[in-house]
Design a binder for these strands. Sequence first.
RNA 1: CGGGGCGUAGCGCAGUCUGGUAGCGCACCUGGUUUGGGACCAGGGGGUCGCAAGUUCGAAUCUUGCCGCCCCGACCA
Length: 440
Amino acid sequence: MKLSNYFLPVLKETPADAEIVSHKYMLRAGMISQSSSGIYSWLPLGLKVLKKIENIVREEQDAAGVNEILMPTIQPADIWKESGRYDDYGKEMLRINDRQGREMLYGPTNEEQVTDIFRRAVKSYKELPSHLYHIQWKFRDELRPRFGVMRGREFLMKDAYSFDLDMDSSRTSYNKFFVCYLKTFERLGLKAIPMAADTGPIGGDMSHEFVIISETGESDIYYDKRILELMNVDKNLDYSSDLSEIVVSYQNLYAAADDKYSKDEFSKEVPKEFQSNTKGIEVGHIFNFSSKYSEPMKANVLNSNGKTVPVHMGSYGIGISRLVGAIIESSHDDNGIIWPDAVTPFAIGLINLKIKDPEAVSMCEQIYQTLNKAGIETLYDDKDDSPGAKFSRMDLIGLPKQIIFGKNSVIDKTIEIKDRKTGQTEIINISETISKINNN
RNA sequence: CGGGGCGUAGCGCAGUCUGGUAGCGCACCUGGUUUGGGACCAGGGGGUCGCAAGUUCGAAUCUUGCCGCCCCGACCA
């Protein structure tokens, strides 16, 4: 993509409305544009990152054997009345009447909708376990939206649902998603700690929040530092194998958010030198709720004895739009964003400092074409701005590698490759560009 | 929803207390000079001062009502 043709409204100054760093940088880097409180438009750069994250999440769900579906944003009130949540959910749910006066709502989550889909289709234990997910916009009319996309009212979420015959098998499903989440967050370049979370009325140990460490997080977290060393899931993991060992290895180390934290347990279970107390951002939440929805909604199957039983369900969420902010929170410096390779909108930022020199322009054009042909996503700064403006803009938008075509490039046939994170530069021959980039 | 703050050009702000018909920096447009860390000179365009009503000869400024946005708290992917 050429910058001259890219809709990238960068801001030199921080808009007064933004408080935390990810919100500031997302606005300054032209990633989002606010529509109203907690509701944003996604501009090209932001959308590209959002899609990258979405795709990684999707690939990992697919790899775990979860079926992708797409449920509507607008749901009928009837199914929520069946589950009993229509009255319970309160003002967070945006309620709408259609022209016939029918009660509808903008979905804040999809347990009812997916249960309805399941019960129409599945009647036998032989079809179980069954795992479905979708990636769809949700709306929750938050009391207080804030921090840009971190707590928006409209947000993109991946939510998955598991259906099992009994609690045992339900735990296997739970473990699968647990490990899948570890793998997903690792791919995104994040250390997301699974933490024991409140299970509500069901009880047990079957609810975990995945939290990344960040000073701007909204949750207080307490954990055993050794848990960070565990994070290294096999990329070619076999999901049909027994995953409980992996799950237990995490559960054996203390990690809890403030709602579940107990001072006594923490100091008893964790040696002083491993104790850590920081702020964190919740980016995923998994839980098992047994037959909470299947019972009232009559999502039943026949078991092997021919007896009708309600299915055991679990749900598994990842806040995709929130992750955009969360990744920035955990990867930035004073000059701007530093994208992890996995989610960067472009792999390379090509800066032409000699835009008035026709020879430089044609050489840069060639480098740009070569990168494109090699499948390396490149943002080519072909604009006629001063060097300082180009450098600071490229730093702000945070592409991990910059190629600088400067004063000696035309004569020496060399370019500079700069690492955004370390700031280190290396001068190489133009002919080596592709091999150099591919080796990094 | 309780507490606090803000709304003036695309962005950041001054002007409001003490009423007299709107200004600064950046950005933008034109011309010229520049070009390795947000260049310089000259000229220029752009504002229903959030909306409405009221007070007044006169309102960005005073009064009342409404709307929007942000921050702190309780709730949450």
